[in-house]
Amino acid sequence: MKRLLMELHALQDKYGFLPKKRLEKLSKKTNIPLAIIYSTATFYSGFELEKQPKYVIGVVTCPSCIANGALELIEYIEKTLNLEINNPNKKCLLLKLQCIGRCYDAPVITINKKIYTKMNKEKLSDLLKKCR
């Protein structure tokens, strides 16, 4: 039997979130109470319980990235996509992210978990085209 964390990763990778039906099935298969699976699923920020918008854009807001202009990037994304942080529209969701360990290439953003480093407005402008 695989560990619960790895089972959840597999579901997250397959569906982009953790569907309720799948978790119920997992509970039956593993004999782990559903309340505990739900607990674990909601605890870790790497797991989503609901289907996500097409583009989830994360901007790292830890000290190295802020020192290298992360907040200006957020402003730029908000303006370009007419999008508020944590308030998704039909297509996109903009989030603050905690440090993902690429501080040596700050500032860092992610789009659907893919990491983009040494970000600036020019590069961002290109990346955001598909998100409009």
């Binding site: 560990r3 619960l4 964390l5 870790y44």
Partner: peptide
């Protein structure tokens, strides 16, 4: 074991809980 985004799992007993499948 792949973590899932929780800084607190750097704490040694939290890491154990995590491997066991708990928060």
């Amino acid at each position: 074991i792949l973590g899932a985004g929780a800084y607190v799992c750097g704490e040694e007993t939290a890491i154990i809980e995590s491997i066991e499948g708990f928060p």
